[in-house]
Design a protein around this nucleic acid. Structure first.
Lengths: 341, 341
DNA sequence: AAAATGTATTCAAACGTTTGCGGGAATAAT
DNA sequence: ATTATTCCCGCAAACGTTTGAATACATTTT
């Protein structure tokens, strides 16, 4: 297609009456080349808009300067902010980014890992699909190409993982509720197997324990997918209890919003009767009435650090895989759903 | 990095005692090769997990099977749904997708076009950054690599463009307001130069005209960026008028939500006193109270058709550029902010 | 003056694939 | 029996770059 054929090293070399290798080395600032010729070559290259043929280069050096990213759902706001960070950091480091969606389908995820590594990406950034049970294919690509996990991770995979301080974040959220005088705090979480949900649940339990509040299983609700709809259903259940909770900690903003909608329906005052806290600081958080108290996860920062670690791994040509968990700090944003001034 | 070195055509050829070219042709299903050898080669290739070295291939054929996408802001919901469509369609057609953000910065956009085309993408999908004034750099890349514009387009650029039926959509939205008995309909739009805003404004005007409602400039408000904040500000202005409008058509959902928030503040009944209609069917539309009437833009479909046309252009090796505007249909979703049953 | 050192450049191979061309063998047409 | 025709396959070049090794020349050391 390219209608204007690109200028090559050969043309530059011929015009300057030097060899191709000299031209190549001059552009790569090789110490063997005299400053005079370097100058000449670089100037002519500039003038002719020379840019190396990436395929020839990649072919020769086995380096593509492409990063692969696989996420469950790109249209998820938090994911897209992470992606924003990934794109930005990758660009400044001189890498391009190929993006794929697994749609929370484990097979598709495996397939993508395979095609990406065979495609020749220099490294892969992966947020696991929900319920990734078999890590075999991941371990497989792991010894082919550097891999960094983020957001949705699993300790079964020995590689660098970038996550948020889930447990602490949840602890802080619940402690905040306790500090506002709440004593009977329900939680809406995911049914096991989710790294994030488990951590958040652990934070919830620790907060209760440290404040000597006993755990009541009746107000610990689990669901397969924490959606808005499920948030409503779960709060309906909570409202039907003899002993209603006085606060709801939802593992996710959408569920929290579902909870708020359910509470609205029964004309329950938020936060006076029942307070609500979410997790993610989604864009909805300030749209909903009352505005939602939630923990802010710095998506862009997660993306950037994930890229940083991945590139570090790529560029240190060590073949050993580093397994290390990087934790990014969150902070609680208190809004009207939990505390009114 | 790749620790396991990949199998090459050479190895396959040697093991089968045939030439490399035969192996290559066998895998590419070339008619010159007998079914017997094709079978042999393909089986062995399968067994050895052969996959062609993409760099060698791209190097040789000058085709990368990579599409470049440039969008203003990836974290914008509508954009991310388009991206979803792009990814899906590209994948089924055997293309990878490189994504970049222009951050609504025209210079960055130009820079990206340049690096992408020199990188060797087979085609580029572009949503223009806000206020793209100089189309030179775009015209420049246009004669280097196939280009398709989507969502944010400009008729100054001769290429395939995929858009939504903005004018009709706006017409329908405003007509809907008229049908519910509204007679004094304000509009919150962008200050010129925006393709989308102009089209929507045209639809607004046509609806008024066809229903013999005279245009009142006092309730036609423009702003640089149609944000939630600006939506509030604009409705504050509208509320300060002697003759208040009885409906507001906001060119964008976020502005519409800003309008709703402002109306809430003054305890104005929606839709009885003032109805509100937005544009985009963002995820907020059902979160806000009352739920927002808005026009639904099928993001995924836009993405898919954009890819379809781009690939068509790539694979027809014609060098001529086709200039054609493809319009994707929208439909109005009526919710509580304009019509209560 | 010969040898050693250093500097700047060139040679040539290699990466893995595709593809135009040529050729051998088998079959069909004359 | 000779000539066409068809069917398979191999040869070799080419894509543009990088890089180890060789070369040429100038400079310094012995």
């Amino acid at each position: 297609m390219n209608k204007r054929k690109a200028t090559t090293l050969k043309e530059i070399a011929k015009k300057l009456d030097i060899s191709i290798s000299t031209a190549s080395r001059a552009l790569n600032n090789h110490p063997d080349i005299s400053d005079a010729t370097k100058e000449k070559v670089q100037q002519l290259a500039e003038k002719l808009h020379y840019s190396p043929n990436l395929f020839a280069q990649g072919f020769r050096t086995q380096r593509s300067h492409i990063l692969g990213v696989i996420v469950p759902n790109i249209a998820h706001y938090f994911t897209s902010t992470i992606l924003k960070g990934i794109l930005e950091e990758a660009e400044t480091k001189g890498y391009k980014v190929i993006v794929s969606e697994s749609n929370n389908n484990e097979n598709k995820q495996s397939e993508m890992l395979r095609t990406m590594s065979q495609f020749g990406v220099d490294g892969i950034l992966l947020a696991l699909s929900r319920k990734t049970t078999s890590v075999d294919s991941i371990l497989n690509t792991l010894d082919t190409v550097p891999l960094v996990l983020f957001d949705k991770v699993s300790h079964k995979i020995p590689c660098t993982q970038v996550v948020v301080d889930e447990e602490i974040a949840a602890f802080n959220a619940v402690e905040h509720l306790i500090n506002t005088g709440k004593k009977r705090i329900a939680i809406i979480k995911e049914t096991e197997n989710s790294f994030n949900s488990e951590k958040r649940f652990a934070g919830y339990l620790r907060a209760l324990k440290e404040h000597h509040i006993e755990v009541d299983k009746k107000i610990i609700l689990s669901t397969e997918d924490v959606s808005l709809y499920k948030g409503r259903m779960m709060t309906n259940i909570l409202l039907s209890l003899k002993e209603r909770p006085d606060a709801i900690f939802a593992i996710t903003d959408t569920a929290a919003i579902g909870a708020i909608k359910a509470l609205h329906k029964y004309n329950i005052k938020i936060p006076e009767e029942i307070a609500v806290v979410g997790f993610s600081n989604s864009i909805h958080a300030t749209i909903i009435q009352p505005s939602l108290t939630t923990v802010d996860q710095p998506g862009e920062k997660i993306g950037k650090t994930a890229v940083t670690y991945l590139i570090k791994e790529i560029e240190s040509n060590k073949n050993e895989i580093t397994t290390k968990t990087v934790t990014v700090k969150t902070h609680l944003i208190v809004r009207d759903s939990s505390f009114k001034v």
